[in-house]
Design a protein around this nucleic acid. Structure first.
Lengths: 140, 140
DNA sequence: GTAGATGCAAAACCTTTGCTGTGAT
DNA sequence: ATCACAGCAAAGGTTTTGCATCTAC
């Protein structure tokens, strides 16, 4: 029996029933360093447990997202992408030629977003920022 | 025969074949002040021409988007939302309680986005920024 | 033992497409 | 007369769900 993954530990903390499938999915997500979609997670999990069902993956990532263990993103291809939520917020810069996703954080932009929202008499509760770019040298 | 809508004029300028359906859809979009999805456009167009097909609406908005006459957005509900493209770029602030969408433009944020992209050796070619907020008085 | 999770297949969405007939230029 | 367009229905991709079975607690 393997040591519990970081996400598995979070699930236990939240009192979720830890089935074998959830443990597998938790491990896959904990070990992922990219932004997989459900099908990616399903494929990676299937290598560990070939009998896992994609419906379970869908149900589990939804649960994890609702528990704020995962962040859900939409990078413009048809499917939702997931990553482990971290305390440090970041946004994404997507290389539209290679598909590579760079994470960045910029406090100036964060502050401006709050300021703009306040100007309309509102309080910022969330945002979505994605930058799409091309490599400078490849451009010419 | 009604006067051509702003979008119809743009279509004619680009040499598009102007069918009755396209004229109807162009008119609906020109008169919309919100960010309708395809189904909204279809419903509004159906009031003018009840025989219009939703496939035609899909094909037409895609065409208009590719011609830069429409901007396409994703506000996180499952469907794409459209609005007439304007020369002045803007982003969106969404009231998550009422669903109201406020348009804003902030050159400081735009400049920061370009700066960040440059820092990674890239050139910004597009972005997506949505702020989600709640009314201040409603919050407490 | 029981509430909740899984697997499977069906269905729900949104969107695209093949085909045939129609209409704009 | 062309050639592109419209309508319809079927199919595509992603995600959800009903139901019977199973499993963690």
């Amino acid at each position: 029996m393997t040591a519990p993954s970081r996400i598995e530990r979070l699930c236990i903390d939240r009192g979720m029933k830890m089935t074998g499938q959830r443990r597998t999915i938790a491990r896959v997500l904990s070990e992922s360093e990219d932004h997989p979609n459900v099908d990616d997670v399903y494929k990676r999990a299937s290598k560990i447990d070939s009998k896992i069902s994609i419906a379970t993956v869908y149900r589990t990532v939804r649960l994890l997202e609702e528990s704020n263990i995962l962040d859900k993103h939409d990078f413009g291809d048809g499917s939702a992408r997931y990553e482990e939520a971290t305390d440090s917020h970041h946004d994404h810069l997507i290389d539209i030629q290679s598909g590579e996703v760079i994470e960045f954080h910029n406090e100036e932009i964060e502050a401006l977003q709050r300021k703009i929202t306040e100007q309309y008499g509102m309080t910022l509760v969330g945002h979505r920022l994605e930058l799409f770019g091309v490599q400078k040298d490849k451009k010419k």
